[in-house]
Design a protein around this nucleic acid. Structure first.
Lengths: 343, 343
DNA sequence: AGAGGGCGGTGAAACGTTTCGAAAATGATG
DNA sequence: CATCATTTTCGAAACGTTTCACCGCCCTCT
């Protein structure tokens, strides 16, 4: 900028004024300056600007795993929204690890991100402390965090799983295996509650041997399913609480020599983009990923636009049960499956 | 830092020296400073540091679509690699749009990213200019760019498609539909060459009506497949040059009332993590995503570590044909499919 | 003609670091 | 005890912006 100013024979203040439109500068000087900018190929240094202005037009986004299709989509939507608004996005993957998450958030705050969208992991205590004394707006995504009072957008997980399990019960299933993620994040808690509630509402017992825990990964779903399938009285249906784990479930079913839905029904949380093309077409609870991402982005953009003091806003969206053909009516002949789908 | 210095009754220079270990500071002062840092909860401002140092420990990463599973995986690997190295990653999605890409790269350079990993889109001319006068190391990913002489890591696309098409020919297919992405990026060119070459090697004609172009999206694959399937003499196999488009292919086959592999064989570029769980299990060309991401990261990290003047390094990795059950031998009874897979 | 008001332009401080040369303190040596 | 060498500490400039107070200038109004 100094260089531009010299070439255009004006002061840096004038160049700045022209670039930012913060003051009127005469047509003559404007032209000289613009010419100089072109000649030199000048680009404003955003770092220096950030230092002075105290704002980076950059946000931080942390998710557990970008390869989980739910987060892939959400990240994609959020990235687009901020791109439109002229913000850059720093992406971090916590790998479901608490320390990694803390490090990454600190890294982001050190870099003076203007805001944070966090699909948190683990207990909220440290997160709360970090976020509290850095004074940036935060939006919690997918997972709420007791004690941390920020804008959030989550799914009505309990209701969604309740509906899915009730659907299985209506098909005649009485022993429904449930594979949960670890309990320290809210959705897993709520989903489990939905499971229990559905069973209880139907007058079915909640049996601990049918409930397994995993750490969100495919391999966890695999192991859990193996255990469920080797039970003396094995379940006739399995519900997996997330998307990667159900892949493990399907592999376990295959490896053990069974077939879905003929031998065992499967449903899961989170939809796949291709779920209605391949067989079995999985029955899933679809989250409104687009809406979730956009709402999260909007909440943060609104704060960034200056609306700092509004009370925290909590958005709860509804899931949608996508009934396909991976669950069969108990006792009915196989031909009935197709029928139950088209119904 | 000023505040810390005051509390510890030392100069800022000493605080800086201690934090960075750039000079020895006496145990006594060290202790006072560390105490003050803890008391105040001081965090070094990375922006100010970047301005002074001329380095941000941040890299820019642009890909066409993060929802394309290939890029999802690559982004994931790259993010992890840089996270380990203490770098932040700014992610941009160009949506296969040239102007968007230019804007985003400029945005990244303005923010003084230390390096760039680009899965470019469109013609390389502007990209070349932008990259040339910003003096940051660049690694081209997946797609080379004539005229821009940087480190690159790409797949041997031609060979990979040659192998896949040859496999189809060996199964007895003579009319093989080919759905390409648009031609302005190198891999699409190379993949097409592989297709033609395989046909020619086998003495089969290259027929234009069997070749369709799309813009990488599912809908493009759908439309192209619809056209191929309504040909008077329709192909017995279809190869799709990328991952999202094959979903469209499968949907078109379903919607038209046909079955894969019974009525038509399908293979495609890029593997899916779940491709061996659902039916049909797609035969694919698997890219070594992990290696691609890691190599790209390593090349850039090496440059960032100071190795600036080494001549551009061009890495070409090999794809792997994953034979599953989505392609059937022509004329053979259906039962032969399973056999051909286990073979 | 002198006062007052806009307008266009500028100099310099500030943002929070790092770094360099110089100063101060310490220790060793004759 | 004076001198010198070494170690530790510090003041101040610099990175590239933005911004604010101020300064001329020209115009308009009494």
């Amino acid at each position: 900028m100094l260089h531009v100013a010299e070439v255009a024979r004006v002061s840096v203040a004038t160049v700045s004024a022209l670039i930012n439109g913060t003051a009127t500068v005469s047509p003559e000087l404007s032209q000289r300056i613009e010419q100089a900018i072109r000649d030199i190929g000048y680009n404003r240094n955003a770092i220096a600007r950030s230092l002075k202005m105290g704002t980076t037009r950059t946000i931080g986004l942390t998710v557990p795993h970008i390869t989980n299709p739910f987060f892939t989509d959400v990240v994609s939507v959020i990235q687009q929204a901020f791109d439109r608004a002229g913000y850059a996005v720093m992406l971090c993957c916590t790998d479901e690890d608490l320390n990694t998450q803390d490090d990454q958030i600190r890294l982001l705050l050190d870099r003076m991100v203007d805001g944070l969208i966090v699909a948190r992991v683990g207990d909220g205590a440290i997160l709360k402390r970090i976020v509290d004394d850095a004074n940036v707006p935060v939006v919690m995504l997918d997972r709420v965090c007791e004690g941390v009072d920020t804008d959030t957008v989550v799914l009505d997980n309990q209701r969604a799983v309740f509906d899915a399990i009730t659907y299985l019960i209506d098909l005649g299933h009485k022993r429904i295996g449930y594979i949960s993620g670890s309990f320290d994040i809210s959705p897993m808690h709520d989903r489990m509650t939905g499971y229990r509630e559905a069973l209880q509402t139907a007058g079915l017992p909640v049996e601990n041997e049918l409930i397994r825990f995993g750490n969100f990964h495919e391999v966890d779903g695999y192991n859990a399913t193996m255990q469920l399938l080797s039970l003396h009285d094995r379940p006739s249906a399995i519900f997996s609480a997330n998307n990667p784990m159900v892949i493990g479930t399907m592999k376990a079913i295959r490896d053990i020599g069974l077939f879905c839905p003929e031998d065992i029904s499967v449903a899961c949380f989170d939809d796949f983009p291709w779920s209605d093309v391949f067989q079995p077409q999985l029955t899933t609870v679809a989250q409104p990923v687009k809406a979730i991402g956009e709402q999260a982005a909007n909440l943060l953009l609104d704060r960034l636009a200056g609306n700092r003091d509004a009370p925290p806003r909590k958005l709860t969206l509804k899931g949608r049960l996508m009934i396909r053909n991976s669950c069969r009516p108990v006792g009915a002949p196989l031909a009935a499956i197709a029928q139950s789908v088209s119904a």
